[in-house]
Write a protein that binds this DNA or RNA. Structure first.
Lengths: 243, 243
DNA sequence: CGGCCGTTTGAGGGCCGTCAATGAATGTGG
DNA sequence: CCACATTCATTGACGGCCCTCAAACGGCCG
């Protein structure tokens, strides 16, 4: 049993879900949450490597991760794919499909994942009568936008070491806000995927991990990460030293 | 009088604004547009170099560019700033501020710009009673999200030449959808700003422009751009040749 | 005209990608 | 339970792209 198994929801209702405050039901009243639950489709878990939806597929629903982890992939014109994000429990997937009514990305489970499916037409209809839901949707989208902008800045201006330190700190925060340890956690993705996301080849990933270890900032054992010197990590990732 | 002056709105009403279909009023009925106009604050034009809002400032409104051009800047921990986007008439600015209720970015006019200001509380109140507006807001945010993901992919996986070709083609499209020429246009920003956006230093920008000229893909005269061989540009920017 | 900012050009170096090969881990089938 | 295949991770040598540093040039606005 892995650490992240602890991220599962406790019950089948949003009301008692421990991820509630990270997810769509945040800021809704008990009665509104009840109505939201009414439109949720429970899906059978997606097993590791299986895809939730494919790029190009018609958009019908957005999804919240309940347990496990998911990566999203954007096709590149030359055939291979760019990893556009990693999604932990409580996070919403599929918002980039709303404009085109078609998914621009594919979503693939990194480990067995269970999800809540929100059919989008039902969600629209519900939010017509529920201003709080509509505002929560806007907040979630704004949050995503901000996260993408931060990633842009990271990719445009930072070295490999800074990119890795940054992303490790972000995972630390995200695990912590889910009640897990900020110091020790297990990365759900391969170095290949993480490198793809960061714009780095696997060889560089390997060497960069090693350099962080040599500076006693982290201990790495396969996918297990221990943050040893968080201050040094922060000053590397965000610090005043230029790129 | 510059080329982009032609991008000004014709009248003071959204109904007759030639940018309507790119902007918030798209997909609204005539009557809904009338109500939307009711909350718009007209601002006096922002002159070149002046800022529309500053990073850290309380979020009160989103803005649509009416004429001119605007850049957005995110502060970096080390003091300097990352150019997170360029905004042409019809585009919406400030959506990244909704979650935190504070602007994460600053917005600065690249050339004298006039804007429509939508106070956000009024916009929320209005969209409570106007499902079409709410859906348009979601579409706009989704479009922004998609654009940021594309930028991520560009920064993570493409060479300087590919980045420049890509961004020039994108500007070409954006000008074309505003009724201007797709072949000849004037970039509203300095090479410094464009390079900052693309994660490239000015020296590299200069050399990369020159290389595109030497390959007879474009003609560059200061800020004036002429796309000569659009197919070659596309195959460079999106082509099957790897990064 | 003069100052300033933006742009260009050149020389040199460092980071990271490419290529190649080995090693480790996981999963599969016998 | 082990042999094997496959995927992932690591290590080293090498090269290229782009950054750094330095200087000169040009346009723009006062």
């Amino acid at each position: 049993m892995t650490r992240t198994a602890a991220l599962s929801e406790s019950h089948d209702s949003c009301q008692h879900c421990r991820l509630r405050t990270l997810c769509l039901p945040d800021n809704l009243t008990k009665s509104d949450i009840g109505k939201l639950e009414g439109i949720i489709q429970r899906r059978k878990p997606v097993s590791r490597g299986a895809s939730l939806f494919q790029s190009g597929q018609r958009f019908q629903a957005i999804y919240a991760v309940r347990s496990g982890a998911v990566k999203t992939l954007m096709p590149m014109a030359n055939g291979d794919e760019h990893v556009s994000g990693f999604h932990l429990p409580g996070e919403i997937i599929g918002l980039d499909a709303i404009v085109m009514r078609r998914h621009p990305s594919s979503a693939v489970a990194l480990e067995t994942a269970s999800l809540c499916e929100f059919p989008y037409s039902a969600l629209e209809a519900l939010s017509d009568r529920m201003p709080a839901l509509q505002r929560q949707l806007m907040r979630v989208m704004s949050r995503e936008l901000l996260a993408e902008q931060n990633t842009n800045r990271l990719l445009a201006r930072r070295s490999a070491e800074q990119r890795l330190a940054h992303v490790l700190l972000k995972f630390s925060e995200r695990f912590a806000s889910r009640g897990l340890s900020a110091r020790r956690f297990r990365l759900p993705m391969s170095r290949l995927d993480l490198g793809n996301y960061l714009g780095l080849v696997p060889e560089t990933m390997s060497r960069t991990f090693r350099r962080l270890e040599e500076q006693d900032m982290v201990n790495i054992d396969r996918k297990e990460v221990e943050i040893v010197d968080i201050d040094a990590m922060k000053s590397l990732a965000f610090g005043t030293e230029g790129a």
